[in-house]
Computed example of a mutant assay.
Amino acid sequence: MSLYIIYFNQQWVGDHSPEWFASRGPMARAVVEEAKTSGVLVAAAGVDEDASRAFTADATSGALEITSGLFAPKEQYIGGLTVVDVPDDETAIMWAGKIAVACGWPQQLRRLY
């Protein structure tokens, strides 16, 4: 089995009505429940959209510096992620597709090493 991360950047979500978002919630929860039942779900979560509650740990200068806020520009932050443990790329692609359909926006899929 291999771990894969399925994620999206917040700006990929787009502008939608509150009703549209409300309609997506049950679909997304159903996919997460299916992944749990299938035994492939490691973790799934949305990321807090309030960038003022983010922190950055940066040691690139040789000394650790902790700052509040995002490291990358706001439009580049992760909006949510799912980690699955599946046997192959094809199975991971299937789960990424299910999540993309349920959420209504693109998902990026990458293998974890």
Results as ranks from 00 to 15, higher is better:
residue 101 V to S: 09
residue 112 L to C: 11
residue 70 L to Q: 14
residue 97 G to C: 00
residue 40 V to I: 15
residue 67 T to E: 05
residue 31 V to E: 04
residue 9 N to A: 09
residue 22 A to S: 13
residue 29 R to H: 10
residue 49 E to F: 09
residue 88 D to K: 03
residue 99 I to K: 01
residue 100 A to S: 12
residue 14 G to I: 00
residue 98 K to P: 03
residue 93 I to A: 08
residue 3 L to I: 08
residue 35 A to G: 06
residue 40 V to G: 10
residue 16 H to R: 08
residue 102 A to P: 04
residue 21 F to K: 08
residue 5 I to T: 13
residue 49 E to D: 14
residue 53 R to A: 14
residue 101 V to G: 01
residue 68 S to D: 14
residue 72 A to Q: 06
residue 53 R to Q: 15
residue 33 E to V: 04
residue 74 K to D: 14
residue 31 V to R: 01
residue 45 A to W: 04
residue 99 I to A: 13
residue 36 K to D: 05
residue 89 D to L: 09
residue 105 W to P: 02
residue 112 L to E: 05
residue 66 I to C: 05
residue 43 A to R: 07
residue 88 D to V: 01
residue 104 G to N: 03
residue 28 A to N: 03
residue 40 V to H: 06
residue 62 G to M: 07
residue 22 A to V: 04
residue 68 S to E: 14
residue 75 E to N: 12
residue 62 G to W: 10
residue 1 M to I: 10
residue 11 Q to I: 10
residue 13 V to G: 00
residue 61 S to F: 10
residue 32 V to D: 14
residue 48 D to W: 10
residue 68 S to I: 06
residue 109 L to R: 02
residue 38 S to T: 11
residue 52 S to E: 13
residue 93 I to Q: 05
residue 86 V to W: 02
residue 44 A to H: 11
residue 65 E to P: 02
residue 94 M to C: 01
residue 102 A to T: 06
residue 76 Q to R: 14
residue 27 M to C: 05
residue 9 N to W: 05
residue 37 T to L: 13
residue 96 A to T: 00
residue 94 M to Q: 13
residue 1 M to L: 11
residue 59 A to N: 15
residue 83 V to T: 10
residue 20 W to A: 04
residue 58 D to M: 11
residue 8 F to L: 01
residue 51 A to Q: 13
residue 60 T to C: 11
residue 20 W to G: 02
